[in-house]
């Protein structure tokens, strides 16, 4: 009796596991499939317009070659995006981290007010400010072909407002570390550099990663600020312009190829830094 019951239980578990594996495999396929399609389309040199075919008519590297030839502005866009993302991720990380460090570690008169104020500011839709910023950038000549410095300014300027996640992390570091360092004779700047920063590696990497990915894939601001001027576009705005009705018929496959080339650096970063990204996401959500 007992043996049979035991048997049935393990069978039940086995069936459950098989069902789980099948579901997981299905889910994985659903999530991977669009990339497979994207990859396949990018190699289609026979039909470079939008197509309902899954497999390329003619297989070749023509689309990739097109991206890197003088005819397309892709290289320029790619370079623009790279510069923007690089500068933004350095400056934004510094500003965001300074803000979260101060809000987590110091108690000063305006602290609560600042936090509430930034909370309220964050409830205004971001594009609202864009209308003004665009006009201002236009007057100082940082739109159109010169959009890159303008975009950097826009991305970086308000980055202090995204302090939540790293503040959540900093809040978990015991305050007595700061106090011990204070008694040991460190200045506040030394505490920041020699005690806190080395302990914040995971969250710093997370911040760098997210602030790199933001401008890397941003479309709206880049589109608006570049004003349709191809010299000032980033990849998102540029590649999107290939999907305009008059371009799409021979630019869809190059668009896919461009997408693959854009996705590769972030995927490589993720391959190595996934752990930190996951930590940041979970930590940030729990701390709210």
């Amino acid at each position: 009796m007992a043996e049979r019951k035991h048997m049935s239980m393990s069978t039940k578990r086995r069936i459950g596991n098989v069902a789980s594996y099948v579901t997981l495999a299905l889910i994985s396929i659903i999530w991977i499939l669009p990339f497979v399609f994207l990859l396949l389309r990018s190699f289609d040199v026979g039909n470079t317009g939008p197509s309902s075919a899954i497999f390329p008519e003619k297989f070749g590297f023509g689309n990739y070659i097109y991206l890197f030839t003088a005819g397309a502005d892709f290289l320029k866009w790619y370079f623009n995006t790279f510069i923007i993302a690089l500068v933004v991720c350095v400056v934004q990380t510094a500003m965001q981290f300074s803000m979260s460090y101060v809000l987590s570690r110091y108690r000063f008169k305006l602290r609560k007010f600042m936090m509430n104020f930034m909370l309220v500011l964050g409830m205004f839709p971001g594009f609202l400010t864009m209308i003004v910023l665009y006009q201002v950038l236009k007057t100082i000549g940082l739109t159109g072909a010169n959009a890159v410095p303008g975009l950097i300014l826009v991305y970086v300027a308000s980055s202090g407002m995204g302090y939540y996640v790293s503040k959540g992390f900093l809040d978990t570091l015991p305050k007595s570390l700061d106090e011990a360092a204070l008694v040991d004779g460190a200045t506040r700047a030394q505490i920041f550099v020699r005690v806190i920063l080395p302990l914040c590696k995971p969250i710093l990497i997370y911040t760098v990663l997210t602030s790199f990915m933001g401008p890397w894939g941003d479309y709206v601001f880049a589109y608006t600020v570049s004003l349709g001027n191809e010299a000032g576009m980033n990849v998102a705005a540029g590649l999107n312009s290939w999907l305009a009705p008059n371009m799409i018929n021979d630019h869809f496959a190059p668009f896919c190829a461009g997408g693959v080339v854009v996705a590769i650096p972030v995927m490589v970063l993720f391959l190595f830094l996934q752990k930190y990204y996951v930590e940041g996401v979970t930590g940030g959500a729990v701390k709210g």
């Binding site: 015991p174 007595s176 570390l177 106090e179 011990a180 360092a181 204070l182 008694v183 080395p198 302990l199």
Partner: peptide
Amino acid sequence: MQPKDRHISMVFQNYALYPH
């Protein structure tokens, strides 16, 4: 005076050792 100028040493309840 700042703590560092007071010529004191202190041991904390949770040790407060620098983990890194």
